[in-house]
Amino acid sequence: MAKERGTSNIPMIMGIIGGVLGLPAAVCSAWCGEAIVAVDNIDSGAVSDGSTGGTILLLGILGAILGIVGGALGKKIPTPAGSMMIAAAILTGWNLASALAYIPLNLFLLGGVFCFVQKKESIEI
């Protein structure tokens, strides 16, 4: 039975660099998100329960992990890995409260596209 595998290291490089930067970006975005909520609540005097920051943090971490996994498997299973990286880009894009998050977002997006369009080779298993 023949299988297809990728030949490029670019998705791996983009996924891992995006992932390791996505983690601090998630933390940063969570802080910024909470700060924005606090500023919005100044007039009403309401106190935030931290759920906004928590959700942003969780989504950001999930995005970073998906990006790392997708990147690392970009050569072995190109199509599922590409889908994972696009999903990671969507999750990271959801969290654009911090400027740092733009870097992993672009890296995941480009890495995901590279996963799909990279030169593939057929191998016997």
């Binding site: 992932g19 390791v20 930067l21 983690l23 733009y102």
Partner: peptide, 25 residues
């Protein structure tokens, strides 16, 4: 710039994992 600080500790961990995976390949 633009208040974007790139954490070098994370970057080097990432570079290490990349070279590790390339070597494994």
């Amino acid at each position: 710039g633009h208040n974007i600080l790139f954490p070098l500790y994370n970057l080097f961990i990432g570079i290490g994992i990349i070279f590790g995976l390339i070597y494994l390949d």
